[in-house]
Design a protein around this nucleic acid. Structure first.
Lengths: 236, 236
DNA sequence: TATCATTTGTTGAACATTCATTCAGAATGG
DNA sequence: CCATTCTGAATGAATGTTCAACAAATGATA
């Protein structure tokens, strides 16, 4: 069977491969790229197509064209359209998970800093941009009727949710708040997703900055002892 | 040209027509139903199909079968698949808007009660159920690449958003809060949409009750002077 | 009321298009 | 050479749309 690439090794390795994929866009004919590079190239083209045309209008031909390759190529590297889409979603889910884990690690040991870092990470340009948001939303729209998507769409999955709950519990302890950690964590993570949806829609004048500001306002309201600063300002 | 029905007159009229549509499901052949009833019947079947199969797999044949009618019928009442889908989305958007407006009116003049009523209205069974949520999400997934959908998907539109901002501003005034009303309103409405998304996905153990609880927790955190009660309890 | 004509609603088969998949063969690299 | 990668035309299935025929309601006429 086809062995799907496992996209997450390190962020650097990922970038390197992507760089190769980009470079090869100029010299595109013939057998110029490794299997891994080709697959990533096709996945990127798939994200492009999803963002530009939506799920229902994304075709194999469009993906192939977007990658500058021939029609039959996708069925060679991925067996079917379905598998290409699953691989694309898995790729984005891995990327997302790696991103918040990295942010969490970099935030050190202070729970308040960790929570703030997690929230801010959601609005980094690297993962929070029109293209990727549109692709995410395209999958969300199909997730209910496809168990495979549904499982992967929990990028904000059980592990992610558990971190939120634990952090909320810790902050409640140290701040003497009255909230149920589980409930507050749900409210918080739901708001983050909702802000993504708003950003994706792109109506209104909601920007990444506005969205982050709203998320921080939430934090200040929910955990006033830990985030006492006025809206907009940030800690050192 | 085809004159699309305008679905919102009164809630009672709507229900009456739907009732007719339901009744006619038994005696379905021949010319038994008015134009309006048939159109609603087909729209309901479309929502069913969207919920069951997702946007990309919703076909004219499936809609017709779901309504117990023949294949060509949809092109008679709506000119094309595209127009059927637009009519379906418009129907849902109207229903949603009518619902929150009614809730707002019923809440009286107190801003705190109004805001709480708006939030609670979002989780009423009549509009917040698996079927409708799935249909909404199906449209969201396609909205970015279709201006028509994008416009209608703002069921939570400018007017809705403005109400939230005004209410937040009023509460800020009377409660002496420090938040920017616009930002807080964005956080709040985004959270409501995010909770819908979670409900739709249906993973985890998020129920309508849990979601409402989370939303109320948010209100208590953001406006403690106005919603001082502990989580779960409600005012008279 | 009975009969007929016209409008309106409905059907299902035929049609045209789009699209994923297949595959025989070409091109490339080792 | 041999294995691997790639191409592009051919194929077949799925599906939106059209339409000629049919059926039911409505209205006109006597």
């Amino acid at each position: 069977m086809l062995e799907i690439i496992t996209p997450m090794k390190t962020a650097e390795a990922r970038e390197a491969v992507l760089e190769s994929a980009r470079k090869s866009e100029t010299e595109k004919r013939g057998r110029k790229a490794s299997k891994e590079v080709r697959q990533l190239q096709l996945i990127e083209a798939t994200i492009d197509s999803l963002a530009k045309r939506g799920y229902s209008e994304t075709t194999m031909a469009d993906v192939a064209d977007g990658a500058g390759l021939s029609r039959g190529i996708v069925n060679f590297h991925f067996e079917s359209k379905e598998k290409l889409l699953v691989a694309t979603l898995a790729y984005m889910a891995d990327e997302y998970a790696a991103h918040w884990r990295a942010a969490l690690t970099k935030a050190g040991d202070d729970p308040a800093r960790q929570l703030r870092a997690l929230v801010a990470a959601d609005f980094d340009r690297s993962i929070c941009n029109k293209r990727k948001l549109a692709a995410w939303c395209a999958f969300w729209g199909e997730a209910k009727s496809r168990p495979t998507y549904q499982a992967l769409c929990g990028a904000r999955d059980a592990a992610y949710q558990k971190i939120f709950i634990d952090l909320c519990a810790t902050l409640k302890e140290s701040g003497g708040y009255a909230y149920e950690p589980q409930v507050m964590a749900l409210a918080l993570s739901a708001m983050l997703e909702g802000l993504w949806l708003r950003l994706m829609m792109g109506t209104e004048d909601v920007t990444r900055e506005t969205a982050l500001q709203a998320a921080n306002e939430f934090l200040s309201a929910a955990f006033p002892k830990h985030y006492p600063w006025a809206s907009g300002s940030k800690p050192a």
